[in-house]
């Protein structure tokens, strides 16, 4: 079985994000970028599947500017076999990404698509669900446990009330949550090897997909700042303040 893993290049999760002075977006110049953490978990899951004999090829695909290649290389260094880069400098919305991925799925015919539940830049949490709809495949979102056997899979999902288990008819789109696994670091030899792995280059036009934006960002602002308050030195002082000053406990 072939596994397709869509990965996104985003601002590294450790970076303190700053809004641009002209309020057109957030500062991306000279900011450390990395693979979206949820996508790392998806790549890791694909590799484990392959190591366990449940998959024979892992293809990572990413949509974005030239430098997106680095993110694809990261996936290859972790253990994916080859990459597909759909190059565009436009910001493609989840629906557009899903439409591009649909074309890739049609060409590659993977048995499963494993991807992040959410990209930590736009925090949209949409692409997997959309891709699954476009393909009319089954889907499992927010997955913390995945077992694929033949044409069926069992997925445990992290839902608001706890955990839910569903059975999926394969092929399926699976979006992963934090606790599915802990992604490995790429070793130096694997980083070297990854340089020789093939990356196929395409454009949205090659795939015949219109990725024009439906949603326009009018402005981006800082959230209202919270001021640090006061320090207390004892439980008595804290309770007194919560009662009489903040008036939040009775």
């Amino acid at each position: 079985m072939k596994v397709l893993v869509p990965v996104k290049r985003v601002i590294d999760y450790n970076v303190k994000v700053r809004v641009k002075a002209d309020n057109s977006g957030v500062e991306l110049a000279n900011v450390k970028m990395a693979m979206n953490p949820f996508c790392e978990i998806a790549v890791e899951e694909a590799i484990r599947l392959k190591e366990a004999g449940g998959a024979d090829e892992i293809v990572v695909v990413s949509i974005g500017g030239k430098q997106t290649q680095e993110t694809i290389r990261t996936g290859l260094a972790m253990g994916a076999d080859r990459g597909i880069h759909i190059e565009t400098d436009d910001e493609v919305e989840p629906l557009g990404v899903a439409k591009l991925l649909q074309k890739v799925v049609e060409e590659e015919a993977p048995g499963v698509v494993i991807m992040g539940k959410q990209a930590i830049d736009g925090d949209n949490n949409q692409t997997g669900q959309m891709l699954s709809a476009l393909l009319n495949w089954s889907m499992a979102t927010f997955v913390s446990k995945l077992e694929i056997s033949g044409d069926e899979a069992s997925a445990t999902r992290e839902v608001d009330g706890g955990l839910e288990t569903i059975k999926l008819k394969m092929p399926a789109v699976v979006t992963v949550d934090l606790r599915l696994n802990e992604p490995r670091y790429a070793s130096l030899p694997n980083i070297m090897k990854a340089k020789k792995k093939p990356i196929d280059e395409k454009t949205p036009a090659d795939l015949g997909v219109d990725t024009a934006a439906r949603v326009k960002t009018l402005k981006v602002v800082e959230p209202p700042a919270r001021e640090a308050g006061v320090k207390v030195a004892s439980a008595a002082e804290l309770v007194e303040k919560l009662k009489n000053e903040a008036k939040v406990i009775g």
Partner: peptide
């Protein structure tokens, strides 16, 4: 809507 873990708030306009 908040983006980047609430570190920025975007105002967006939909044409759908």
């Amino acid at each position: 809507r908040p983006i980047y873990a609430g570190n920025a708030i975007a105002t967006v306009q939909s044409s759908d």
